[in-house]
Simulated scan of single mutants.
Amino acid sequence: MPRLALLLTTLIWGATFPATKLALDQVPPLSFLFLRFLLGASLVGAWFVLARRTVRRGRSILAASGVATVFLFLGYVLQTVGLRYTSASNSAFLTALYVIVVPLMLRRFHGRVLLATAVATLGLWLLVKPNATMNIGDLMTLGCAVAFAGHIVCLERFTREFDAPSMLWWQMAAMTLLFIPAMGWERPPSDAFAPTGVLLLGLAVTGGFATGAFAVQMWAQQHVPAQQVALVFAAEPAYAAWLSWYFLGETLDLQGWIGSGLILAAVVIGASGSGDRAVPTAVAEVA
């Protein structure tokens, strides 16, 4: 069940690409990220109120949330700024290389995972067709892949030690605060925040559904090893390509269909294995 939940959340992550692309025609990228995380933090806070749950405030959970937020913030900033200097296809491919970085960070090398990683990498290459040249944008996006990998690794550990909903709240709140000065740096015009249908749809997908997907990820990572999570998330570019093809009319040739098929095959190969290192059970945090 956790792996199926992750696969469904990846569909939502994929939907954020066309939704964000449409919204960015109206609002600058970092300002959009501020709105996205502000909505996400508000929704998580509302859930705590309605569920009559208390946000844990212990020093340990704050420190863990802070570490995870650093990786998450770096990932989004490096990816967004890197897009100004590189192509969207290079960005999609290089970002998804966290499928390789996660097992390297954890030093977990199993035959099934290695095979799935190789198949996923080939599929990503066929799907997004990145060019062979490297520029500053590509280097920043590589840093983004490392940051997102670090975030996945953090969640594997911290969601087993601390209250996952509280960690979700602290990350959403911290991301919102961190993007306030970024929004000031962009100095967007006032009409950029006009509540148009495109902007509201983009925020609904990225700030609403994607926040729910993030919550499911944090729950699932209490049960699924990080390297398998990274493999499942490799399906995100495939979903994004299909949704962009269907809703935005973007082209997807035979090579792209083959590549996306290989990615899904890699997900099935890697996520169905049982030979990964056992993960510890969750322990209660002392507030």
Rank of each mutant, 00 (worst) to 15 (best):
P2K: 00
L4H: 10
L6Q: 01
T9Y: 00
A19V: 11
A23N: 07
D25F: 11
D25R: 07
Q26Y: 07
L30A: 11
L30W: 03
L30D: 04
F32R: 03
R36I: 10
F37W: 15
L39N: 07
A41R: 01
S42Q: 04
W47C: 13
R53I: 05
R53D: 11
R57F: 07
R59A: 12
I61V: 11
S65H: 00
V67C: 01
V70C: 01
Y76M: 13
V77A: 07
T80I: 12
Y85A: 12
S91V: 12
Y98F: 15
P103M: 09
P103Q: 11
R107G: 08
L115F: 08
A118Y: 04
V119T: 10
V128Y: 04
V128W: 02
L139T: 07
M140W: 10
M140H: 13
L142T: 02
A147T: 03
A147I: 02
G150L: 07
H151N: 13
I152T: 02
L155Q: 00
E156K: 00
F158Q: 00
R160K: 13
W170M: 04
T176A: 15
I180P: 06
P189T: 09
S190A: 14
D191A: 14
A192N: 09
F193G: 08
T196R: 12
V198W: 02
A204E: 05
T206S: 15
A213T: 05
A220N: 01
V224C: 05
Q227N: 14
V229Y: 00
V232A: 10
P237T: 12
A238R: 01
Y239E: 06
Y239P: 06
Y246N: 08
F247R: 03
Q255G: 14
S260D: 03
S260K: 02
V267P: 04
V268W: 14
G270Q: 06
A271N: 09
S272P: 05
G275P: 04
G275Q: 10
D276Q: 14
A282N: 03
A282R: 14
